[in-house]
Computed example of a mutant assay.
Amino acid sequence: MPTRPWTKILHVGCTAAFVVVAVPTLSHMIAEGGAVKFIAMAGIAGVFAVAHLRVIGADRRIRELRNALEEASTDPLTGLPTRRTIDRWLAVGGERTVALLDVDDLHGINAAHGHAGGDLYLAAIAGHLRRVAEPGDLIARLGGDEFIVITSRLAHELADALTCAMTGTVKIGTSTVPVRMSAGICHHGDPRRALGCADLAMFTAKRLGGGIAHYDPDRDGVPLQAGVRPAVRQRDNRPTRRSVGGS
């Protein structure tokens, strides 16, 4: 990370002050035998040195804090943004399409291939989603086996892209595992409201056996509150068929 401009100025200032003022003066004091003055000037030089070290330490601390913030905003497994970034995007008003995606039967994949295999599966799904993203889209991991897409594209355009991402396969060891996900999509003027509606549509997709479901208030109901999900949510068992719902 490049050094901040103000730290560069202080670096140069401290060094220049020491070289231009302290060094010639100290040499003169030694030549004239002014021991007391020499000690005083040595103290001044020490102050410059301490200030210089503090500037270096402050700059290093800034880099450490920025790195920590970046790590907190990035999922280490998939490399995708996390809830911190999602919340910022949801706070911005305007027409948005939100898709909420949930991996089907991740428990079964973990049981068959171990948790390392499950992690590989999640990381591969993140790659599938990245490949269908467009500039200006947010692809993020909401947590666990859930992903979110926020875009300015229309709902049917996003659905077409996600269909491509959800029809691939993942190689785990010697096994080829199909991508199995359920997704809910909603387009709304309030992104937080869109998230709540997409959540309900996603569970409709699970009940139908997987695939993509567009939000339908008559079928899916109304979210409790914009962007707030029920504390206890009914999850179906392993989906048995795939379908695409629309409204």
Results as ranks from 00 to 15, higher is better:
residue 4 R to H: 12
residue 4 R to E: 08
residue 6 W to P: 10
residue 7 T to E: 04
residue 8 K to Q: 12
residue 11 H to P: 07
residue 13 G to Y: 03
residue 17 A to D: 05
residue 25 T to S: 11
residue 34 G to E: 14
residue 34 G to M: 01
residue 38 F to N: 00
residue 42 A to N: 03
residue 44 I to Y: 01
residue 46 G to Q: 01
residue 48 F to E: 01
residue 49 A to F: 08
residue 50 V to F: 08
residue 53 L to V: 03
residue 63 R to Y: 02
residue 66 R to Y: 04
residue 67 N to W: 11
residue 69 L to E: 14
residue 70 E to K: 13
residue 71 E to I: 13
residue 74 T to R: 14
residue 75 D to Q: 07
residue 77 L to Y: 10
residue 77 L to F: 05
residue 78 T to K: 10
residue 78 T to Y: 07
residue 79 G to K: 08
residue 79 G to D: 09
residue 84 R to V: 15
residue 90 L to K: 02
residue 94 G to K: 10
residue 96 R to K: 13
residue 101 L to C: 14
residue 107 H to I: 07
residue 108 G to K: 03
residue 108 G to E: 02
residue 108 G to Y: 00
residue 110 N to P: 01
residue 119 D to R: 09
residue 123 A to R: 07
residue 126 A to C: 05
residue 127 G to Q: 09
residue 132 V to L: 04
residue 137 D to I: 07
residue 138 L to P: 03
residue 139 I to V: 15
residue 143 G to Y: 15
residue 147 F to K: 08
residue 151 T to Y: 04
residue 153 R to V: 03
residue 159 A to V: 02
residue 159 A to S: 12
residue 160 D to M: 13
residue 161 A to L: 02
residue 161 A to I: 00
residue 164 C to V: 13
residue 169 T to K: 03
residue 170 V to M: 03
residue 171 K to G: 07
residue 176 T to L: 14
residue 181 M to G: 08
residue 184 G to L: 12
residue 188 H to S: 15
residue 189 G to M: 04
residue 199 D to E: 10
residue 200 L to A: 07
residue 206 K to L: 12
residue 208 L to F: 00
residue 209 G to S: 02
residue 209 G to I: 11
residue 210 G to R: 04
residue 215 Y to L: 07
residue 218 D to S: 01
residue 224 L to S: 11
residue 226 A to Q: 11
residue 233 R to S: 02
residue 234 Q to P: 04
residue 239 P to Y: 11
residue 242 R to E: 12
residue 244 V to D: 12
